[in-house]
Nucleic acid binder design. Structure first.
Lengths: 388, 388
DNA sequence: TTGTACGCGTTATCAA
DNA sequence: TTGATAACGCGTACAA
């Protein structure tokens, strides 16, 4: 039936797939491939098709490599053909296929970021800072959020890995205790920068705020305002931010000759639910703490609301200091004293660090931790006249 | 020098690229391709390499198609070979390459979302809702934000298009007046669902909150509390949310026999800077409005802060109502009365809609607008005793 | 300056 | 049940 166009034989012909909807054949004898236009009925089976460089090439009667060169401003190309190609590409509404590009280059020019939550302004701000820097450098940012869930975090990192991000910015959820999903990146030499929610057990490149300093100043400030029974509602013990803020709290007490009482320290999990429970516990203690340093602002706000509900006057009967300068802090009551973190700067620093790492490729850069300073924002919740 | 392994000839040999680091040759005479192992020096030129199904196949002496079948739980495969393949894949720490997968399938299982800003809780909440639904359905969400900039929005949509998202969720920036970048999706039959920041001029599938109803109730509530000179600080006129909230404002006034005064209506641009300026203008008017219905909460909060600075008592001398129930609204002063939007529901509805559209593929579904109801949250900023 | 042909990693089709 | 091979769209080394 079907003859080889080269040797004319019939019985050596076998089917060999399709080329753009047309049946392709192979002559086994002379190893010659050829296609025969299929009837329209079969041809229309092929689905809708975005215009590719091949379409442009065929349309203009040039080769796909010429089109590729023209689209990339390669120097060795006739200005006229380039012009014609660019024109035709525009007319055919050509859009490059990033997938194919990344596949052949083994680079995606994409950085992934994973954050534990999205519901306070903190991480979105960091993302904005990071995205600004990355876009400037020609990279895209794929944003994922884990909802403070270890499982979701693992799923997100897997997806980022499958999508071959060139680098990862990571801030882990509060119940992450296994780090294999992050190690998978390092095993493949994909650089990772950890920020904010970091752990000592993992990573060589980190960006954090100076939690210790901020906590120290916060507690010192309470002491200077005459509070003496200062409790601490902390975060999960595995996170460095919890450890550092706790350390600042303890050191400030000691520096001013106040005792560090275990019963005045509780580790929460950064959720509002737990914050409310532990706040209630503190406020029912005897002797009741006269001030509470909270690991973050949502926790501090829960404390303030509960104190208000119980008729406790802030700051006279209870001083409160939070952490992170949530937008609510400026507006609640006479204001919540808090430690401000430079969110945009954290994002920018992390982005710059990952850019360096990705550029460095093979040579492993020395470990580096960027620590950005924090700032105490004094508002009404801690301003009791000091008993000098 | 180099002989064809098939016919033994020498001068018919030509180079034909590389195969995994090895030089590949073609015998022009017999059309036979073959490779010769390159010396190690050249071989190491190839860069680091993620393990692929080919590595597994060669390692086990089976074909790549068998590996592919094993990894996908294809039924027609020997349980033993499958077991061996899965084992070896695990040992080699194989991670599928989503890029290659998407390229061959012409589907990415990815949905893009573009939001105008990231700094209030509103859009992050929507994103959380959408992501939950999409992940459930096996899709990933690529999040982008335009910073209320038209140029960034265009850049983001281009990137999403290049990455071949299967669908788009879009909420446009406040200075977007040209819609070509969105039309590019529709031209390629990539479904788009517009939400919240939508326009009448574009799109067939939308998810919005019932802005009209919310605005009507808000203004009616002010009237019932005895306010009579109610101003409106609105949003950009091209956005439907601005139009609908304005319409609700006007209708509520008319329904209660109050005049609609042009001088009591200003179109802002949703930025805090402008909000402050226009708020100042209202508060200096004579006669001064005794209430202001703001297009969103940040605007309303600016009004409250400015009023407080000017010594105006809220709600007695000035009533204020906002829109969206920002977390700050509950905590500022005695609380800001506001219209709550079901953010999570908006995200979920948009996600479900895009899932339907992507599934429908060819057949174009009829236009559809999902309108979710809003809810008036009454707080202190509007609770003046009504003069009945 | 332009064309040819192959690889990137995967899936799918057909043959065996 | 398994193998061989094209195709997805693009970049590029090499040949012409």
């Amino acid at each position: 039936m079907i003859k080889c166009p080269r040797c004319g034989q019939v019985e050596t012909i076998m089917k060999a797939g399709f080329v753009r909807g047309n049946q392709r054949f192979l002559c086994k004898d002379c190893q010659y491939y050829f296609t025969i236009a299929a009837p329209d009925a079969i041809k229309t089976k092929k689905r809708r098709h975005q215009t590719t460089i091949i379409d442009i090439a065929q349309d203009l009667g040039v080769s796909n490599s010429t089109v590729s060169r023209a689209l990339h401003g390669h120097p060795d190309i006739n200005p006229n053909t380039r012009k014609a190609i660019l024109e035709r590409a525009h007319e055919l509404d050509y859009q490059p296929n990033q997938l194919a590009h990344s596949l052949v280059k083994s680079r995606t020019n994409t950085v992934g970021i994973i954050v534990p939550e999205f519901l306070t302004q903190f991480f979105p701000n960091i993302i904005v800072g990071a995205q600004k820097v990355l876009i400037q450098a020609g990279f895209h940012l794929i944003i994922t959020q884990s909802d403070e869930s270890y499982e979701t975090e693992v799923g997100n990192t897997k997806a980022l890995l499958a999508n071959r991000v060139d680098g990862l910015l990571a801030s882990m959820s509060h119940d992450t205790n296994n780090y294999d999903h992050f190690l998978a990146f390092e095993k493949r030499d994909i650089p990772v920068v950890y920020f904010n929610r970091v752990t000592d057990e993992l990573g060589t490149h980190k960006v954090v705020a100076n939690d210790y300093q901020g906590a120290f100043w916060a507690v010192e400030h309470l002491i200077q305002n005459g509070y003496t029974r200062i409790a601490h509602l902390g975060g999960p013990p595995n996170l460095l931010i919890s450890q550092e803020r706790l350390r600042g709290y303890c050191d400030a007490l000691r520096a001013h000759g106040l005792p560090v009482l275990p019963e005045y320290i509780i580790h929460g999990d950064l959720t509002v639910q737990k914050a409310r429970i532990y706040a209630g516990y503190f406020l029912e203690m005897t002797p009741r703490p006269d001030a509470i340093f909270a690991v973050n602002d949502p926790t501090a706000i829960e404390i303030m609301l509960l104190a208000r509900a119980k008729g406790l006057a802030i700051p006279h009967e209870l001083g409160v200091v939070g952490f992170s300068d949530d937008p609510i802090a400026a507006h609640i009551g006479t204001g919540l004293t808090t430690v401000k973190q430079p969110t945009l700067d954290i994002g920018e620093a992390a982005a710059n660090m990952i850019l360096n790492l990705m550029q460095a490729e093979e040579k492993t850069l020395p470990p580096e931790t960027v620590m950005l300073s924090t700032e105490l924002i004094v508002r009404g919740s801690s301003l009791r006249q000091a008993t000098k």
